[in-house]
Simulated assay, not measured.
Amino acid sequence: MREFLMDAWLSALGVTHPVLQAPMAGVSTPAMAAAVNAAGGLGAIALGASDPAQAGAMIAETRARTDRPFNVNLFVHAPPRRDPVVEAAWCEALRPAFAEQDAEPPAHLRAIYPSFAEDDAMLALLLEARPAVVSFHFGLPDAARITALKGVGCLLLASVTSLAEAQSICRAGIDVLVAQGYEAGGHRGVFDPDVHDDRLGTLALTRLLAVKADRPVIAAGGIMDGSGVAAALSLGAAAAQLGTAFIACPESAADAGYRAALMGEGAAHTVMTRAISGRPARCLPNRFTTLGAGLSVRVPDYPVAYDAGKALNAAAKARGEVGYGAQWAGQGAPLARAMPAGDLVRAIVAEM
């Protein structure tokens, strides 16, 4: 096995292999994070869709399973712009799909969770819990929140999709950049989903940031095995972050329909869609992505649209239909392997 020098910040966390498990809301679990840690990687849990009580319980469970540091992830999206006309039109556009499931769309949509940018209760929880690593997706919290988290010893990571975003993150004092290529599964980490997206791939973005940004870089997007990790390191990344690779692990919270879709033919044909949540996200092709592609009405802002998406998925699952889920996956999905998370990390390391 080729040996790679570990960055000091990774060594300080007790990480022995430059393999990070992505924090995936609805998929990653404390058991997954602990298994990745035990294999020498850095595990993660996703708190962005949780309230402080749920987040506190997840942190406590993860700490009960591992005595090593792990990453906790927050969503820092701009607060949604509420427009009752747009929201009503969206629900009406979804009405036929709800009717197929013998259900009605919601009468009113909700912003189903707040952004960390305005969630004081979540900040208070983190300042008390003092997780070793805190990461941000969709943007950055304000300077006061960054200063407070660094003041209690948190190492801060943030997703970026461009050099401009990376430069703003460096100015804000974030410690490590997560270079999310367009290949990545799940939500695109762009700060503003309504501005032009250059759609940089993982290879180009990782090398660009390694040369141009004065921060360690973690490569993320389309990486599924040791060869992919080694390639990222050769481009100047300090580590690679893998998400889709862990979905089929038994520690994953993905349901049976999601797992079957990941292992099916559609894995080779992932698509970007806003229809499910209101933000661009890479998904396995399913009934929801097909539905969204055929609708011409404006999608409400994230996470308001997600309220309708989750309601439609719940109605469909109650009737045995699994094609309306948020089945996020990256372009490397056909390389997914169903094995315990710790074994997967060890296999990746051997492949490097």
Results as ranks from 00 to 15, higher is better:
Val211Leu: 14
Gly189Pro: 01
Asp175Ile: 04
Glu265Pro: 03
Ala103Arg: 10
Leu242Tyr: 10
Leu177Gly: 09
Gly228Val: 11
Gly264Trp: 09
Ile45Glu: 02
Ala315Val: 06
Val345Glu: 13
Pro250Thr: 03
Ser234Thr: 15
Thr29Phe: 13
Val176Pro: 06
Ile174Trp: 04
Ala240Tyr: 14
Ala179Gly: 10
Leu235Tyr: 14
Ala204Val: 15
Gly320Val: 01
Val229Met: 09
Arg110Ser: 12
Thr273Phe: 02
Leu13Ile: 11
Pro80Ser: 12
Ala60Trp: 00
Arg207Val: 03
Lys317Pro: 00
Pro80Gln: 08
Val86Glu: 11
Asp307Tyr: 02
Ala158Glu: 05
Gly14Phe: 08
Pro80Glu: 08
Ile169Ser: 13
Pro23Val: 01
Val178Ile: 15
Lys150Ile: 08
Thr202Gly: 06
Ala219Trp: 07
Leu335Met: 15
Ala281Asn: 08
Gly41Glu: 05
Leu156His: 09
Leu284Pro: 09
Ala25Gln: 12
Tyr302Ala: 02
Ala117Asn: 06
Ala253Cys: 08
Pro96Phe: 04
Gln21Glu: 10
Ile247Val: 15
Asp175Phe: 05
Gly325Ala: 12
Ala89Ile: 00
Ala316Pro: 01
Gly320Trp: 01
Val86Ala: 09
Ala88Leu: 00
Val211Glu: 15
Ser296Asp: 14
Ala338Arg: 14
Ile276Cys: 07
Lys212Ser: 14
Ala256Cys: 04
Trp9Asp: 07
Gly332Ile: 13
Gly228Arg: 11
Ala184Tyr: 02
Leu209Gln: 10
Ile223Thr: 06
Leu127Ser: 01
Gly189Phe: 01
Ala318Arg: 03
Ala219Cys: 09
Asp102Glu: 15
Phe4Gln: 11
Gly292Glu: 05
Ser28Gln: 05
Pro285Gly: 08
Met1Tyr: 09
Gly14Val: 03
Met263Asn: 10
Gln167Tyr: 00
Ala316Cys: 03
Ser162Asn: 08
Glu87His: 05
Gly139Val: 14
